[in-house]
Write a protein that binds this DNA or RNA. Structure first.
Length: 885
RNA sequence: GGAAGUAUAGCUCAGCUGGUUAGAGCAUUCGCUUGACGUGCGAAAGGUCCAGAGUUCGAAUCUCUUUACUUCCACCA
């Protein structure tokens, strides 16, 4: 039994994938190694959350990166794909809090230390799950370098950056309006807000004038905030209210006097034209309050309950208080009307709770100075966005950036390295806990309770994972990284922040290219989500169809930055493709001699079809390489697919079958060589996309193969350039297709072979036809072929095929329907005429001939010549038939 | 309110810097135990490239306008 016969008839991914992956890893092929002889190529993984489960988005993201890194590795770069995970402060903390709740505990009850212990335990238990899942995608990450955003080194980097920014005055602590999630119990940054258009109400409320002269009507969507009102503002230009500016109003329910003030902020013509001002609970009001020097009265606590400033409402939950206040206003006759009102309400990105903006004391990063170099990094081209339209989104955000609230009232995360002096109140900010206050020398210091936004640490990922702030050899060699692959949905959260962090800390960009991909949606185009239950588990798909099939289906038809749909049919066809190449290999090996000695191959014995495919494979190599360099992964893949399936399997293999089956054939070894040569080239081109099946095949093709993943990327081989043979075989394929077409149309069974007569006066065409007789016989169902220069002996009822500079005649005896044949020829003649007219009018257009590139004009001329020749043949035959018929 | 994307065969999508008789997969129709594969082979049908205007010798491709859908940003109490 030879190697081919020992291969299963159907490729079964699940039987080989795991072992192949373990082999790669055990042999250290994934390792990024500092090699001064080689150029580095670096990718850092977008670290998945430790709370995460593998989803289709990861699958796409990982596949793209793996394709690029495998390609570069094969090209001879010292490739490093650095993996790791993110601590995901808010998401993880919520998990721990939930787990505690099940035990009837709160985090306050167990205290910070115990809480963190549990969090680390949780991380140890579940943090590796996602990493295991990434491996099943075939990811060739250097797992020996796996990092975690809260490991020792990265925490050091975080403290270093914090201290540096603080010392430069770019981090400050201040009292400002911040968005607060009463459910997660923490402040959040602006970009963590998700707005949605919600149904609400406009409550119109009368605020009576203190002097008893009537009332002023305001409208609000949050009536409970009136407890914190300190004024009512009107537009200074508003004729209606000119006279009341400066008058005092009685704040309902609170019974306190507040002034009517004038401020441009109030928009003319909107609502009642009078706006209650609650500086502690609204960012705009806060600004108005500052301008008018008004007090800031916070009336709600961190959990969303009315505080002691709320008088009799103190202790009530915010919505209960709202209801009560509306009722009380109604009772006092101050409620004018309630209007339904749609408005945008901010929700917590993580838990969906309606956010409460209020003043609190938080840490911020001053963004303006950081944004400028970051904008320049992209504008100058040092960082390239693919597709480049995302640069616009990026500029727009960066140019209008607000300061970044980085403190979180959470325990799981990097605790802010600020130490308050209990004696003098001075804030000591330092890398390590100071022994005494740098201001008064007191040793009584208390560390800040708050932790940092998760994204603060991931912003440092490209350099912190390489050892920064230490000047490590890794950092020197592998930084800056080459390409970052990520979804466009985190351009602000992560990409932008890495850019300004790197520019500030490293003085250099974090990566040279950012390749953005879109979302993987369900088959109906909906976002995959837990609540819809429409998510598809990549692991299940892998089990069923294989990793390669999943990867293939995600990449084919994918273009940068665009969303795509997940369709199972696509995975199925990808699986079929894996099976196809498996069987092509099986065929090749089944038809190998025992250990063919390719050193004995004589290129002089290459046939026309050997040269044709060697030449075509060369072009494929160049094109695919170029597409990959430009990150056109989907295009590259479909080119290999087409070549392997259509060109290699359906044509070349079929062409060489007779040679292989004839053990005495003189050039059998050459056929085996070419089959092998081209197949290996294709497998290498395909390997980044479909690593497992190509490895499995590679192992079959080579006796002592190490691994395809460390083999070298194919190069176009100049000695295999045969443009003439390529043209010749294209001519023959065209002829065969036409023969098959006619036979099918005439309903001729494939068992009935026809003796074909080729008529041509063109010497080179005659030669090609003669040379290709075996191919025509085999694939064109010919019993034999005669090539001659004139029409002698051609029966009137033979079916005819017009080719450039040649005609083929197929006597099919009684099977041919003359009427039908005349119809067919007439139609064909008409089609050709149309084409010829189109092209000749183009060529007779002086402007075209003068202005179009010579190559294009030449191309059109050649086309015209070809069609004319075919036309002539068709017209002659038609004429003949009509005459004789 | 601002910005962006998409619109190509029944479905899902390719088509790069303008020059193809406009492509693929799936589905459809017809035929095939052709010594690798029916997860296959062969053949076919199917498209005013959303609509309109412009630039050009030439537009699916570039510009503008319209329509439909999608997304992001901002946000008026």
């Amino acid at each position: 039994m030879n190697k081919g016969e020992s291969m299963a008839k159907v490729y079964e991914p699940c039987t080989v994938e795991k072992q192949i992956y373990e082999n790669w890893e055990a042999n250290g092929y994934f390792k990024g190694v500092i090699d001064p002889e080689k150029k580095p190529f670096t990718i850092v993984i977008p670290p998945p959350n430790i709370t995460g489960q593998l989803h289709m988005g990861h699958a796409l993201d990982e596949t793209l990166q793996d394709i690029i890194i495998r390609f570069k590795r094969m090209q001879g770069f010292s490739a490093l794909w650095l993996p790791g995970t993110d601590h995901a402060s808010i998401a993880t903390e919520a998990k721990i809090v939930d787990a505690l709740a099940k035990e009837g505990l709160t985090k306050e009850q167990i205290g910070r230390e115990e809480f963190l212990k549990r969090a680390w335990d949780w991380k140890a238990k579940y943090g590796s799950r996602i990493v295991t899942q990434l491996r099943s995608l075939g990811s060739s990450c250097d797992w020996s370098r796996e990092r975690f955003t809260m490991d020792e080194g990265l925490s050091k980097a975080v403290r270093e950056v914090f201290v540096r920014l603080y010392n430069k005055g770019l981090i400050y602590k201040g009292e400002r309006i911040t968005n607060w999630c009463p459910c997660c119990n923490t402040s959040i940054s602006d970009i963590e807000i998700e707005y949605s258009e919600d149904d609400g109400y406009f409550w119109h409320i009368n605020y009576p004038f203190a002097d008893g002269s009537g009332a002023l009507t305001i409208a609000t969507t949050r009536p409970e905030t009136l407890l914190g009102d300190v004024a009512v503002a009107v537009n200074p230009e508003d004729e209606k209210y000119k006279d009341i500016i400066g008058k005092m109003l009685i704040l309902p329910l609170v019974n306190k006097e507040i002034p009517v003030i004038a401020d441009d902020y109030v928009e003319l013509g909107f609502g009642t034209g009078a706006v209650k001002i609650t500086p502690a609970h609204d960012p705009n009001d806060y600004e108005v309050g500052k301008r008018h020097d008004l007090p800031v009265i916070r009336i709600m606590d961190d959990k969303g309950f009315i505080n002691e400033n709320g008088g009799k409402y103190a202790g009530m939950e915010r919505y209960a208080a709202r209801k009560q206040i509306v009722e009380d206003l109604k009772a006092e006759g101050l409620l004018v009307k309630i209007e339904p009102h749609k408005h945008n309400v901010g929700h917590c990105q993580r838990c969906g709770t309606v956010l409460e903006p209020f003043v609190s004391n938080q840490w911020y990063v001053k963004m303006k100075p950081l944004a400028e170099p970051a904008i320049d990094a992209v504008r100058s081209g040092r960082i390239k966005f693919v597709p480049d339209r995302f640069a616009k989104t990026y500029y727009n955000w960066m140019e209008n950036i607000q300061d970044w609230c980085i403190s979180r009232q959470l325990w799981w995360g990097h605790r802010i390295p600020a130490y308050y002096c209990d004696e003098c109140g001075h804030i000591n900010v330092s890398r390590e806990a100071p022994e005494k206050c740098e201001c008064c020398g007191s040793t009584k210091l208390t560390q800040e309770q708050d932790t940092l936004d998760t994204w603060f640490s991931s912003a440092l990922w490209p350099f912190s994972t390489l050892g920064w702030p230490d000047e490590t050899p890794d950092l020197k060699y592998f930084y800056p990284t080459d390409v970052l692959v990520t979804g466009y949905d985190i351009i602000f959260f992560w990409v932008a922040r890495m850019i300004f962090s790197a520019c500030e800390q490293m003085g250099e960009v974090p990566f040279k290219t950012v390749l953005f991909h879109g979302l993987v949606r369900d088959s109906q185009g909906r976002k995959m989500s837990k609540s819809l239950g429409n998510g598809i588990d990549p692991l299940e798909v892998i089990d069923q169809f294989g990793t390669d099939a999943l990867r293939f289906s995600l990449i084919t038809g994918n273009s940068p930055g665009n969303d795509q749909r997940y369709l199972q049919e696509k995975v199925e066809s990808a699986r079929n493709f894996a099976n196809k190449i498996w069987n092509a290999t099986r065929f090749v090996l089944m038809n190998f001699d025992e250990d063919p000695d390719f050193t004995k191959v004589d290129p002089a014995k290459f046939t026309i079809e050997d040269k044709w495919i060697l030449s075509a494979a060369n072009r494929l190599v160049s094109e695919v390489t170029e597409n990959l360099e430009k990150y056109e992964l989907g295009v590259a893949l479909s080119k290999v697919y087409d070549f392997v399936w259509d060109v290699y399997c359906d044509w070349y293999i079929e062409m060489v079958k007779p040679r292989l089956f004839d053990s005495t054939a003189d050039n059998r070894l050459e056929a085996q060589f070419v089959l092998n040569e081209v197949l290996i080239k294709c497998m290498k081109l395909l390997h980044p996309f479909m690593p497992f099946v190509t490895e499995a095949i590679y192992q079959k093709l080579y006796k002592d193969a190490e691994s395809i993943m460390i083999s070298s990327w194919p190069q176009a081989n100049e000695k295999y350039s045969y443009p003439e043979e390529e043209k010749a075989i294209d001519f023959i394929i065209d002829a065969i297709k036409k023969i098959r077409n006619i036979r099918h149309e005439m309903g001729v069974p494939s068992s009935r072979k026809a003796h074909v007569i080729a008529v041509t006066t063109d010497v080179s065409k005659a030669a090609i036809l003669s040379k290709c007789e075996p191919i025509l016989k085999n694939l064109g169902y010919c019993a034999g072929l005669t090539v001659q220069a004139d029409n002698t002996g051609i029966s009137k009822d033979a079916a005819s095929i017009s080719l450039p500079d040649a005609s083929l005649f197929m006597p099919l005896e009684e099977l041919i329907d003359i009427k039908k044949e005349i119809e067919r020829l007439t139609q064909e003649k008409q089609n050709l005429e149309n084409e010829i007219n189109r092209i000749s009018s183009k060529l007779s257009n002086e402007n075209f001939v003068n202005k179009a590139p010579a190559q294009v004009v030449e191309g059109e001329r050649a086309k015209l010549e070809k069609y004319r020749s075919i036309y002539e043949n068709t017209a002659n035959r038609l004429h003949d038939m009509l005459e004789r018929g």
